[in-house]
Design a binder for these strands. Structure first.
Lengths: 210, 210, 210, 210
DNA sequence: AATGAATGAGGATTCATTCAT
DNA sequence: AATGAATGAATCCTCATTCAT
């Protein structure tokens, strides 16, 4: 490798540098949260000096928000349900749950960081938290629509309750795995969750007592 | 007023000072997490200088661990189930769920801080995280025993699954309320959760397919 | 629109870019002084990136020196006395003073920045300070010559004293206006100053006691 | 000197430390202005680490404001007119002028830093500037009262004009000395200034044309 | 039991400047 | 003629912690 090649690597590849910074920041922030993520640590991990990080991102807030956005996209890609509309509602709920479970095992950084941000209550809320809550709301809308399709008899209130419970179970089981270690069989727990969400739908239907 | 009386106010009441520090630290840590809790901020909130905080607590780790311990006790007191063993298993599960829901609404600092700590993954784990996981394990044992009593037909694996699911739902619904605001009716969601946990118990019984 | 036309706007007009940079730098430096003028701030104000500023100016020192030079020229143009040698010495001094007063109201950046630079005492003197002191010396020479013409009886020492006093009064009255706001009637104060400088000339003449 | 003595020097003498910091800051700020005064430089000059400076002063703004306040007091002490009310008005004005001239030669830091601050025009004005303008206003009031005593025939407008002119001359002559070097005989120039201020008072009296 | 004073390490961010393109 | 990307040094300031009193 000639010197000019070695130099070119260093010089002027903004896109790649940005990715390297985001990779490093995602890893650190996924482990330590917002405050635990120091620019110096990101710098050390990605190899670029702090001042270069500030060329790509306005400030730490901006960086973390970008991390959330990108992590969400990566996670979404990992979830994407095969669009075959086969099977009855229980089978389809179960497949979806399995997909989400696998995605959380494979790409846990997004939700881990997101939940840490979501639980915080600072006077001046970090932008990353807002972004997380927004993409989460987007995801919720998708689930809501699936719910409407699978359970057309449910009214909006019931759909809302069902969606809330489905997400809450997913969050809680994720927390369980994070605290109890990798031995946890998340897919199995999500299968149970799917069955119970399905049962909840049945119970929420008109004519059944709440 | 004698000198000793004038002095007594300033001096001597170590217990009260300790409480003031813990109060301040609990509030700040419940809002901002471990890293977001600076000794200076605690000092400002409780009115005692940083050096006094170090007189009562070895270091920040120690302080946060103490916060977790005390918050857990406060939360436990808020939960405590009326010991009347009346009603069938569904009724008793439902009452317990309602109690937990109310306790989380009234004393959310414990779980909020605890979850933030639990989600972190740093090389040198703060002692507060360990303490949280320990008291959580204690709570889990209690739930396990209640489960064994209510559902004597379940084997240990099923009890474990049931307990896990019950706790996960509680965590997830708590997160839901933290992110969606105080308007969320946590008690109603916990009632649904109780019913579904009960249903899960039924399904996990021998003779029913998983 | 051909490509070269489209390009011309972006490319080529070095003179205009230079002006825009100088305009921005003059405004910022006139408000914040040497250290308070960051290249980034100038860049933000003029719309050109920092690297472009360095294409036009060797370094920050060079930029500030250029600002001083240009501001001086602008100020000089605003002062320029109508060359009619009419009236007696008092009238002529008064007209000059009025002109200077107006120029300081209209183009205060030059003197404001210049005085800030002049008052500083750093080990490595910025070139801008040297330039300011030079153009100020040039201006002083002009005033000296006017003085010699108006008061041919005065010896060189007296002329020097008179010039010094005239300039000091102008500087001080400028400071007064800068600190007391735009309501100050600088022209009126300069008229008084002109009268007193004229009186000073009278007193400095041979035969009058100092 | 025993070790405990050497240690005691370092430990816990807040008043002395504060003085050392102010001394260092006054010297540096008097030479380089607000922006040119870095906490690191002050730290290096006074021997205390930056964090100790922040124990004594909230932030840089607070430090510079304190410097202004203390420098003003030192300067005031250097000016203080001997209270003997002897002599006619010209003599008394002349004595005062000589005192001020000497004080500016002996303790120039106050006015140098103050004028630098006063000339700046930032969006968020440093507190030091406000403090300088306040103490300056205080000084102006004193001069105003002396003026009323010496020239009881003058109306308030005339007194105001006279005071303004007296201060402007002092400021301008100070600038002259700062830019032209220590060879300048400030006392002589102030004597001329005193005479002309006295003459101005005469001209401003009722019955004389403005 | 408490605290005023101090401190080294590290926090985020901005600085003036460079250089390949 | 111009600029996107980079960078080391410096910026102000906060951090957790200590220790003599």
């Amino acid at each position: 490798m000639t010197r000019s090649q070695a130099t070119r690597r260093k010089r002027a590849n903004g896109v790649e540098s940005r990715q390297r910074i985001l990779d490093a920041a995602a890893e650190i922030a996924g482990e330590r949260g917002y405050e635990g993520t120091s620019i110096a640590a990101v710098s050390a991990k990605c190899g670029l000096p702090p001042s270069s990080i500030y060329w790509h991102f306005k400030d730490k807030d901006d960086l973390i928000a970008a991390v959330i956005e990108r992590s969400f996209e990566i996670w979404l890609a990992a979830v994407e349900v095969p669009d075959e509309r086969t099977g009855n509602s229980l089978e389809r709920v179960t497949v979806m749950a399995a997909n989400v479970a696998k995605s959380l095992v494979d790409a846990p950084d997004f939700l881990r960081l997101g939940l840490m941000l979501a639980l915080e209550r600072r006077p001046s809320e970090p932008r990353g938290r807002t972004v997380f809550l927004q993409v989460r709301e987007t995801a919720r809308q998708k689930i809501t629509e699936v719910g409407r399709t699978l359970f057309p008899d449910l009214d909006e209130g019931a759909i809302h309750t069902l969606t809330t419970y489905a997400i809450a179970g997913a969050d809680g089981l994720f927390v369980h795995r994070e605290t109890s270690g990798e031995a946890v069989d998340l897919v199995a727990m999500f299968e149970l969750h799917a069955q119970l969400v399905h049962e909840a739908a049945r119970r929420l239907m008109p004519g059944n007592s709440g």
